[in-house]
Design a protein around this nucleic acid. Structure first.
Lengths: 334, 334
DNA sequence: TTGAAAGCGCTAACAT
DNA sequence: ATGTTAGCGCTTTCAA
């Protein structure tokens, strides 16, 4: 049976007190500190509350306790397929702890992110900042005020969930090497993205014996990927790893446009495994477990709310091989 | 143990009043109704407030005014690519009106949706319910309480944004007919989805001279689409329209698996245009303008907050032709 | 084990 | 144009 929705005037503690013939403090205690009451009283009050469809007024509670029961998650672009699974699992975990979640979309802008945070700050217990574009200074300033959990941003001393690309990226490079590729391209993501920085590093260090051409695509998008193909061709690479699956799809389209077939003429690997399993051909991708990260971030924040001790959670990645990688056929792109 | 110590250290109106040597109401008015005050007073108070780093306490404001400055958007599944663009544009429009937005993900469950709503209700001005799974009764009960805007749910008298598939669906059928198809399949969505109901109706009425085979796939997913291919083959259809792009991708994969090429052997059309433009091959799809709907819903709700008059906004769809449709080659599937 | 009463920070009559 | 006062719904001393 579905819970009843709150009625227009709102059922207050006073209403319950009257109906249950107890004082308002007793009603309050029945919910917040039931151990102080006799079990019968607790049961009775709760039964009445349920019957009346009582839902605590968070604003009033917050005013009294300073706790809001809300958290906020801020992302650069909820339409980027990396974030929805993260937000989804985040909200699910928050719900379990009876926390409501605000969503902020900064549109990849540090300025909008700051505004969003300022707007939300007065009514949330804490923040989850995913792929934050904010300056380190601003983040530290915020973190000094209230619990903050970072996702894919590595700031020492601030609780964070890091999706460690190194495993998957290394596997990707190894695979490409094994398949006979000698020159590969990396379609790089935004400069201020921690994930991108990490991927660049891993790539160059794992690529011994392999030439890596870094191609900047700016804001990662399908169009950016598609348009980067001329640069890829120019580089002479026979395989590419893209910053994410969206870019990867764009590259795929751009290659097909030029008559370059994947995987027979060219091998392609994406990252994050967001679109990869949902497309035809299915994309080889570095799986990032965004959903896992969302849950981890929520749990970390919830824990932080009680015990403000910094922590860092790392989530491993691995390569998921699908239809877009193959051995070089004649050693070079046609 | 004093929970009050956890309250965020904040500068209050009282502090400003003392520092500025005016009453608290003057301080309040300097922010909410400055036209009632002398310009000098306003400037002075605001200067002091800024110097002290004053940030209004939303909870207190809400408790006093009954206005929260928050709205909530509830979706069945934020990971479904239809919703992120909607939520994104919704939040953007809300931001313009200085409204913060809560996100609820009901996981396709009416019960969880009701819980979410009950939890959020005491701190939001209004709701946007996208593809709500709630019973009509519960929705009406909620709508009696506070402004509610429905997306893709058609309840008379309740403000709603309807993405009208009929235009796009008709175009799709016409195209298929023109291309020489005589028997097409419709991969149907969830029974309780308004969009699906509308699509079925349009399909059967627009398909004169065309045999339409309706194939139920249950909860729309990639796997469901892929697994429905045997039924498609059995039906003898040479083209298919899928309930959404995710199903469409699944069908595409299933067809390729059986050696049936799209579009040379089979024509495929998706709906919603979510994944369609981001994949290779790009998918022909009935564009649904989810982002437009999000903006429309936000605007409708904002308008409703001032003038509670019901309204219904309809958003037209059209067919976007991409690489997955073509004329029948030999009149039947190989 | 329960009740009475004092605020939390703010806004909005009602005064002046 | 500005001050005074009374709450909003809840939690939490302090009493009983």
């Amino acid at each position: 049976m579905s819970p009843r929705l709150q009625r227009a005037p709102g059922v207050t503690i006073g209403d319950i007190a009257a109906a249950a013939r107890v004082s308002r403090s007793t009603v309050s205690r029945a919910f917040t500190r039931p151990q102080l009451l006799s079990p019968e009283t607790v049961d009775h009050v709760r039964a009445v509350a349920t019957r009346l469809g009582y839902v605590g007024n968070q604003a009033a509670r917050a005013l009294s306790t300073g706790r809001f029961g809300n958290i906020a998650v801020v992302v650069p672009d909820i339409a980027n397929p990396f974030f929805p699974p993260l937000v989804r699992s985040l909200q699910s975990a928050a719900e379990t702890a009876d926390l409501a979640v605000f969503l902020g979309d900064s549109d990849e802008s540090a300025e909008r992110e700051a505004k969003l945070i300022a707007r939300l700050a007065p009514q949330v217990e804490g923040f989850v900042l995913a792929s934050s574009r904010l300056s380190e200074e601003l983040i530290r300033e915020l973190a000094a005020t209230r619990p903050v959990v970072l996702v894919n941003r590595d700031l020492d001393g601030i609780p964070r969930v890091l999706i460690d690309s190194s495993g998957g990226m290394t596997e990707a490079v190894m695979l490409l090497k094994k398949l006979g590729h000698q020159r590969i391209a990396y379609l790089a993501g935004p400069r201020d993205s921690w994930s991108d920085q990490q991927r660049r590093e891993v790539l160059t260090s794992a690529a011994s014996g392999l030439a890596v051409e870094v191609i900047e695509v700016g804001r990662p998008s399908y169009a950016a990927g598609r348009d980067s193909v001329s640069a890829i061709v120019r580089s002479g690479a026979t395989a590419a790893i893209a910053f994410d699956d969206v870019v990867s799809q764009g590259v795929l389209a751009g290659l097909e446009l030029r008559g370059i077939s994947v995987p027979s003429d060219f091998s392609l690997i994406g990252c994050d495994d967001t679109l990869a399993a949902l497309t035809t051909p299915a994309l080889t991708s570095v799986s990032a477990g965004a959903a896992t990260a969302g849950t981890a971030a929520a749990k970390l924040l919830i824990q932080l709310l009680e015990d403000p001790t910094a922590e860092c959670v790392t989530i491993a990645t691995h390569l998921v091989i699908r239809a877009t990688t193959a051995a070089v056929t004649d050693g070079a792109m046609r």
